[in-house]
Write a protein that binds this DNA or RNA. Structure first.
Lengths: 330, 330
DNA sequence: CTGAAAGCGCTTACAG
DNA sequence: CTGAAAGCGCTTACAG
C-alpha cells in the first residue's frame, strides 16, 4: 500500500531493457523502431506494475503542461451550456490535451487557476478583463482565446445575437409592435445583458418596431411590478427577457398586478431552462444547442496550442424558439 | 516578450548570491538565518524580474503537489452552496495549499482531474463510487475525504438531515398530519433524494405523523398532475419537496389541476433559490447557510494532508425556514 | 533495434 | 550567515 510510486525505471529494470526504450514505447515516440515484441512486453509490464507517468516530471522536461484551461464566464451558465464543454473535452482529449474548466471565484481572493496549472492555452467563454490579462501575462501565458487584441464586443458574437434576434422575431410574428427588454440587476450578468440589449435593439430596428425600452428587474423587490405598470401604460405589449429567470420575474409581477399574460403582456425568455416549462403560465423561450460550439472552441484552442489550421469563424449555434403559454394563448 | 522564463538561478546570478539563498528566502524556509538585508534584496529582485516559481519543478522535487481537489457532487449544487467553496479556498490558501474544484463530466469520457493534478487530498462533497475510488487508488491517491472505509450513509450526515427535518416541522406546526415527499426523477439527484426521503420519514415519525408517501415528479410530463391528484384523494395536505424546482413542479401541477395552494395542498421546497421567491404563488423553502461548512471541509482536508488536529465532527449548518405563500395564506 | 546520458527548475540536507 | 551539490522522474538528441 504505502510503497513509493512506480517509475519508468522500475518498468525498465523489471524487464531488463533501458529506460529509453520504455520511454519510447510509452510515449509512442514517432520515428522509432521498437520491435513489436518489446513494445508489448513494455506495455504489459507497465500495466502489471500499475505504472503511471509522473505529470510534474513530464511537464518539467517537456517545458509545457498539455493543459488547456477553459474559463467559465462570470455569469452563471445555463445548464445546457455545459454540454459544449463535454464536447470540447472530448475533442481535446483526442489531441492529447487535457481540458480543465475554471469557474472564477468572485468573492474569494484565492489565486486564479492559471497560476497553478501553467496551461498552454487559456480559453475564455467571454472576454477577459485587464486585471486578468495582466495576471496571465505575469505567468508567462501568451496563448489566449479570444485574442485580447482583436476581440469583437460581445454584442457582435453571432452566438450572442442569435437568441435575441429570434425572440424579437417571435414577438413580431405575433403582431407586437412595441416591445421592451427586461434584464437582471445581478451585476454578474451585466456584460451579457448589455450585449443582448444591443442585439434586441438591432433586431427591433430591422423589423421596424418602436424603440425598445430597457429595464432591469430584481425578483427580490418590486422593481418587476413598477416596470410592468410603466410598460403597460406606455403601450408595450411584448417583452424580450434576458433569460428565463428574468422572464419569470416579469410574468410573476404582471400576474400579481392583475394583468393577463399573454393577453396584456407577452413575455419570452431565453435558455429554455426547466423553470420556463414549470412556471404557471409556462414561459416561451429560446433553446440554444451548443454542441457545435464546443468543437469550435476546442479547435480554436488547438490552433493556439500547436498551430493546427484555424476553424472557420463565426459559427452559428443551433437556435430555436420554444413557444409556450406566455406568448401564445392555448 | 518571447524570452524564456525567469528562474531562481536568474535571480541569484543577478544579485551575486547563491541559488540556495534565493530558495531559502522565497520559500520562507524555517530555521534559516538570512540577513534582513539579503532577504529584501532577493525579494525585490525576484519581483523586478517577474520571477514565478515553476510549479512542475517544485512539485517534482517536493514529491507532492500542494493541491487539494474538491469534487463537486453529481447533483447540481444550489447557487448558495458555492459560498462554502469560497470559504474553504481561503482557509486552504492560508495553509499554503491550493483548492481546485472539479465538476465531474458525466457524459464525457475525459479523464478525471485527479489523474491530472496529483492532488494530495481529494475531498468529496458526497460519497465516491467504487469506480472512482479505484481510479484514485490507481493514481496513488490515498488521502480521501470522507474516508471511504468509514463513510456513514448520506442520510445520516447532519447537514443533509437538517433541511428535511425543518420542512416537516414547519408543516407539522401548521397542523398538517398527512404529508408526502416529492422528489425529482432526474437520476443525478437520486442519492440525495434518497437521503432526504429518509430524513423526512424519520422526522415525520418523530412528530407522529401518518406514513409518508413518496413520488418522483418530472416537470416535462404529467407526473406532477397524476401525483397531486393521487395525494389529494389520499388525504395528503402537505408536501415536502426535494428542492425548489420540485416544489415548483408540484405547485404548478396542483394549480393547473384546479387545486388551491396552500388551501388544498401546502408545499415547502428546499434551498431558497431565486425561483422560490419568483414563483406565483411564492414558494416556502429552507435556507441553508454553509459558510461554516466550508471551513469544516477545509479543516478535514488539512488534517489528511499534513496531520493537523481534526476539527470537531458533525457540524450543523445554519438552517432556517423561509415561509412564503405556498404554505401560509397571506 | 536499443542504450548511456543530459538536463528541465526546484528544494534541502550538508558543510562550511 | 551563505554556498556547492544531489536528485525528484521524465523526454529525447545522440551514438551505437
Amino acid at each position: 500500500m504505502g510503497r513509493r510510486r512506480v517509475t519508468a525505471t522500475d518498468v525498465a529494470r523489471s524487464l531488463g531493457v533501458s529506460r529509453t526504450t520504455v520511454g519510447f514505447v510509452l510515449n509512442n515516440t514517432p520515428g522509432q523502431t521498437i520491435s513489436e515484441q518489446t513494445r508489448r512486453r513494455v506495455l504489459d509490464e507497465a500495466a502489471r506494475l500499475g505504472y503511471r507517468p509522473h505529470r510534474a516530471a513530464a511537464d518539467l522536461r517537456r517545458g509545457s503542461s498539455k493543459v488547456i484551461l477553459f474559463v467559465l464566464p462570470e455569469w452563471p451558465m445555463g445548464f445546457r451550456s455545459h454540454q459544449h464543454l463535454e464536447e470540447a473535452a472530448l475533442a481535446l482529449d483526442e489531441a492529447g490535451y487535457s481540458l480543465v474548466t475554471y469557474a472564477r471565484q468572485t468573492a474569494g481572493r484565492s489565486r486564479p487557476l492559471w497560476e497553478l496549472l501553467d496551461p498552454e492555452v487559456v480559453v475564455g467563454m467571454g472576454p477577459f478583463d485587464d486585471e486578468e490579462l495582466a495576471s496571465m501575462r505575469a505567468c508567462g501565458i501568451t496563448k489566449i482565446v479570444p485574442d485580447p487584441e482583436h476581440t469583437p464586443p460581445l454584442a457582435e458574437w453571432p452566438t450572442i445575437t442569435q437568441g435575441p434576434t429570434l425572440q424579437v422575431a417571435h414577438l413580431h410574428e405575433l403582431g407586437h409592435r412595441r416591445i421592451a427588454f427586461a434584464g437582471t440587476a445581478d451585476p454578474r450578468h451585466s456584460l451579457l445583458v448589455d450585449a443582448r440589449v444591443r442585439a434586441t435593439r438591432a433586431a427591433a430596428h430591422r423589423f421596424e418596431l418602436d424603440p425598445v425600452d430597457v429595464a432591469l428587474v430584481d425578483y427580490r423587490d418590486d422593481s418587476g411590478g413598477a416596470t410592468v405598470r410603466r410598460w403597460h401604460d406606455a403601450g408595450v405589449t411584448g417583452v424580450v427577457a434576458y433569460n428565463d429567470d428574468t422572464a419569470a420575474t416579469v410574468v410573476g409581477a404582471a400576474i400579481r398586478d392583475g394583468m393577463s399574460v399573454p393577453g396584456d403582456l407577452a413575455v419570452i425568455g431565453h435558455d429554455d431552462s426547466p423553470l420556463a416549462a414549470m412556471f404557471v403560465p409556462a414561459i416561451s423561450s429560446v433553446r440554444i444547442d451548443t454542441v457545435e460550439l464546443g468543437r469550435h472552441f476546442a479547435a480554436l484552442a488547438l490552433h493556439e496550442a500547436d498551430g493546427r489550421p484555424l476553424p472557420p469563424r463565426n459559427v452559428e449555434a443551433d437556435v430555436a424558439v420554444v413557444p409556450r403559454e406566455s406568448t401564445q394563448d392555448r
